[in-house]
Design a protein around this nucleic acid. Sequence first.
DNA 1: TATCGGAGCAATACAGTGTATCGACATGAG
DNA 2: CTCATGTCGATACACTGTATTGCTCCGATA
Lengths: 228, 228
Amino acid sequence: MTVWDRPEPPTRPVPLDRERIVAAAIALADEGGLEDVSLRKVAARLKAGPMRLYGYIATKEELFDLMVDEVQAEILPETQPGDWRETLRVLAHRTRQAVLRHEWLADLLGGRPTLGPNGLAVTEARLAALDGLADVDTVMRAAETVSAYTTGAIRREVANLRAERATGLSKSDWQRANGPHVTRMLATGRFPALEKAVHDATHVDAEESFEVGLDWVLDAVAAKLARP
Amino acid sequence: MTVWDRPEPPTRPVPLDRERIVAAAIALADEGGLEDVSLRKVAARLKAGPMRLYGYIATKEELFDLMVDEVQAEILPETQPGDWRETLRVLAHRTRQAVLRHEWLADLLGGRPTLGPNGLAVTEARLAALDGLADVDTVMRAAETVSAYTTGAIRREVANLRAERATGLSKSDWQRANGPHVTRMLATGRFPALEKAVHDATHVDAEESFEVGLDWVLDAVAAKLARP
DNA sequence: TATCGGAGCAATACAGTGTATCGACATGAG
DNA sequence: CTCATGTCGATACACTGTATTGCTCCGATA
């Protein structure tokens, strides 16, 4: 019985694990957005049948949870700076940067509690930064307030960014970017304050306005920490 | 040719308009969440074929936009209170209440720019409250910061609410509500600050923590308005 | 070593989705 | 009365998440 007579052994399936699955899903989402992530496509990237994934995840939502947690690892800074304020600021900025790298994150952020290891680690980092500076309740309120601002601001930024991309690519001109509709609405005179704001506001880039708002919120936190 | 010989005239289709379509979609979403809203089901409620809707909307996303704008009408207060701070506070609270009435709004809030008439009106109300109290840029930053906090906080609240509902119905006990997983994670000792917070924090209801965080942010705004 | 149980996997199937296409038909204009 | 027009419904397509089913191979047991 020579080699030539014996058939090749059947090709063993590519080994799989959650890490590989999540990586494939993230790659897909990075390329084409969240709606491009289908279990079939993810499986195809791994040269596997769609049903194979159900050995590792029970539902597509779970895959999303894993994706979010995976990316949250990028948020944790390698070295913790000393100041509580600096720590919170860095965490917020790194969150923003992670979302800009993975825009689909904006669709998921805040949508479910982040209970994965990295999500918990981020929460821990926020709380640790404030630990001992006030009573527990104040600390929690502070952490949650900063985090609420962060996710809210980032979401709006991405929303605007997408809208700009959708309406041609005119970036600087607000009115033109939003098409004739907004212009027409403003012309009705029913939105005088908005009209003034749109007309007179100096355009600042997104990062700076994120930063400014964040600073305000941090100021508020600082004020509350001062008086326990 | 008597009446009996003549066939009935063909039943004319039920007249349709965006208002009716949006109302049907909102009703569906209120009952079963956003994912229960399918063009087929919406159309069925109106005794129409699915394709009929495409005379009024070009895409499902547009339907969502219309839904959001419709519900935003509920946010505008009937009478404007005097104080800028009170105005912003009321707007935030009414936003929260609207989301609690229509939980699906949490999935959409902040996801796209709100360019509909009611959305613009809400923005206008926010800006109008601050109008003249500082330069335009500061006013915009203030409005956006408050709104970022609001949407972020509400989203987290709804996320937690859903998670609680999903894990049995134990509401007060954080650890039990989140199942053994979080308990086990905390037991690793890798999240000391989180552990302390979970253990020692006095449970305050969602509305109160929303209110407190909001007040902090409003304090921050007040401070910036003071010095132009 | 032969057999068997069980696990992992692929194929198939199903109910449902958003939307393009097209043919019929009622309606208003000439 | 005829004809063009535009609206509506049916059909169709490509695709989704997931349940079910049966095969096939691996390792443990007799």
